[in-house]
Design a protein around this nucleic acid. Structure first.
Lengths: 115, 115
DNA sequence: ATGATAGTTCTATTGTTTTAGAACAAACAG
DNA sequence: CTGTTTGTTCTAAAACAATAGAACTATCAT
């Protein structure tokens, strides 16, 4: 079972959060996670238009910034938003960014299993 | 009297705001404006360590993102935060970013005229 | 006019980011 | 074992961003 680097919540830097979310793809990833809760890499809208290695890169930026958590489960990588931790570290920040982003929201793909 | 480009508030994009504030110097500029209200370029802390042209560049990024307003007054350039406009466009956003940034705050230089 | 001040514009260097192709690895299905 | 799925790592190209030196413009003071 492979482990992936995640910064502890107190190591998380505001600048990195803002930078990570200044990219439309990464912002969209976070929006989709907020909507859905837990997703594999392939479930994201935008995961097909963009090459796989491009998405791997973006997930790493989000992970290093402290925004998401990745857990390896079989051959899938389950991604979640570090919502509670982030809310306690930077109260109101994610709320206001996500609500500001509502207007440009791209929704997650329908669940594979429920179709 | 020279005029400088400023985007209208509805043209302001969240991504550009986040990007602009993901740089420590630019975040600090915004923090100092929040604290002080109106400043000339030279009054900013960090304006001396960094070359003048570097600061000109950062002010332009902030201006293009819609965060600041620059008004030419004699040979000085008076900079203000577009606080109210931004608050109405993205409620709570600047508040939460600035309060998240409190911990890493760098204060503005003392006023020249009051020393 | 001369000089100082405030800041811009031009140009260049250096470093970082985004993107993606190709080869790879690990898990699962038959 | 063979093939498919899921995603990574490696490598490289192209675009972009941060920095600053030098020359410049405009204002203000003497």
């Amino acid at each position: 079972m492979k482990t992936v680097f995640h910064p502890s919540i107190k190591e998380v830097r505001l600048e990195n959060i803002l930078y990570a979310l200044s990219d439309p793809i990464r912002l969209s990833v976070v929006q989709q996670l907020e909507e859905r809760g837990e997703m594999t890499c392939g479930e994201f809208n935008c995961a097909e238009q963009k090459g796989k290695s491009t998405m791997t890169h973006h997930f790493k930026v989000l992970r290093d910034a402290g925004l998401i958590h990745t857990q390896v489960e079989g051959r899938e990588h389950l991604t979640t938003l570090r919502r509670k931790e982030l809310d306690s570290r930077f109260p109101g920040l994610l709320d206001s960014i996500l609500s500001a982003a509502e207007s440009v929201k791209i929704h997650a793909k329908p669940r594979r299993s429920s179709g």
